[in-house]
Design a protein around this nucleic acid. Structure first.
Lengths: 252, 252
DNA sequence: CGAACGGTTGATACGGCTCAAGTCTGGTGG
DNA sequence: CCACCAGACTTGAGCCGTATCAACCGTTCG
């Protein structure tokens, strides 16, 4: 991944004293005193519970949030009362980057289960990046990465069928959990089928049927929120689009 | 838009000596000498022609590109030979932000028509942002804005039907052109129906039928690539989702 | 002139949404 | 501790939107 020959992500995750900072100081050669300075501006709030809001759409933007443990969903309430789930955020992931532009949150963030969340006042972080080049670069990377992830999801929604979407979703969860040292093959979903469907652009019933099918096909075991992935390769194959999708391929 | 009481976007567009810089120096109070410094690192290449590449997937990331005139599409080639169109970029828009993270381009960028494109070496820009706080802030905003835009598109692909997608696409083009001083109601499409369909996750035939329908309904006049918007309000209404969509609304 | 390509239009098939029952689980109160 | 209820999930049947297949038209270009 990292082209510039620096410390690997995993090395640095350990080096970071506060796990909530890993996302920010991952792949850069931050001097210990710089890590110290970064560490000082981070607020460690008391644990939040299911249903608590980190922020709501329209709130003034003050801080970025980093999930330490637990999970958070971000969503855009739509005028008609519904909502569009924009993402699920697992430990180590940063929330709120989309609010910098307008200086206000464009979406809401709600805690899915009891979670520890760190808060990083953006104004102070921005000051800090002015004097620590590698931290500034890391911020650019963080923002850029978010764009790349959105792009992937975009591809998912534009081109993949229901099966491929759910498979991709599960693999994404699996990989992200694994990156944080949790099991990649045995985990609990903190979101409802409804939320999964909303996120993937599918009806609840479709999601439910697919879980059943995946289990019947021996790809995984599903017991309510408990997921055990049995055949990861088969899942990857589903996503990769081995199966014939729709058309939608052509050039200029 | 701009919460912080600074010069408006439009004021500054004029102030910028080089129109290609507008995206970067839009809403900040850049001192004249800073604009000068920014201006100095911008390369003005000779015009590119239809089919030329700005960069290809996998290329090492060196520069951001800003469209001065013309248009560019970005797309991700898929292993099977097809491609996913990720975006169309009009004058004033910045290309390449998603490449910062991995220091390599994750997509390709191809010129759709004869275009003038400026190149900004990122390493030099990054140096510059270290010494100009408002430029740094503007970079954060630019990246953040890109995230917000992706999110919008994501919503489009996840929740909207064909009609709403095409309407949203046309309105988006219209507004972006208008922002650059071009006509919002009379313009030429530089991309093919195929590319539009690919971008919106629709089959070419569907796009074609919708253009016909929109014209029959008196929303616009369509003559090949020439689009004249007649009833913008009706288009807005289509997008807003006045019509009943699918379900996909619920909470946690 | 003919071939290639982009675009339009029609007929048909099918994936996934919708509607409609159920089933299971967890929480609450008697 | 059980009865009850509400909400999450599952399962089935049918329908609708859009992809797909196919034919055709107009334009461009060699």
């Amino acid at each position: 991944m990292s082209q510039r020959k620096v410390i690997s992500l995993d090395d640095l995750r350990v080096a970071c004293r506060n796990c909530s900072l890993t996302s920010l100081c991952l792949p850069m050669g931050l001097a210990p005193e710089d890590i110290e300075r970064l560490d000082e501006i981070v607020k460690r709030n008391r644990p939040l519970h299911r249903g608590d809001f980190l922020f709501r759409e329209g709130d003034r933007f003050r801080s970025l949030f980093v999930v330490k443990t637990g999970s958070v969903k971000t969503f855009a309430p739509s005028p008609e009362g519904g909502e569009q789930v924009l993402g699920f955020h697992l430990p180590g992931e940063v929330i709120g980057l989309d609010a910098i532009d307008k200086d206000a949150h464009a979406c809401s963030a709600k805690v899915l289960e009891t979670s520890a969340i760190c808060e990083i006042p953006f104004a102070r972080l921005e000051e800090l990046t002015m004097s620590i080049p590698s931290l500034q670069h890391q911020m650019y990377r963080l923002l850029s990465k978010e764009i790349g992830q959105d792009t992937e999801l975009l591809l998912l929604l534009g081109k993949k069928n229901a099966e491929e979407r759910l498979a991709a979703f599960l693999l994404s969860l699996s990989k992200r959990l694994h990156k944080r040292g949790l099991s990649a093959t045995d985990f609990y979903l903190s979101m409802s089928r409804h939320e999964i469907g909303n996120y993937l652009g599918l009806a609840v019933e479709t999601v439910s049927r697919l879980f059943t099918r995946f289990q019947d096909d021996g790809l995984m075991r599903v017991d309510r929120k408990h997921i055990q992935i049995i055949d990861q390769d088969a899942l990857e194959a589903l996503v990769g689009g081995i199966g014939q999708h729709r058309r939608q391929q052509q050039q200029s």
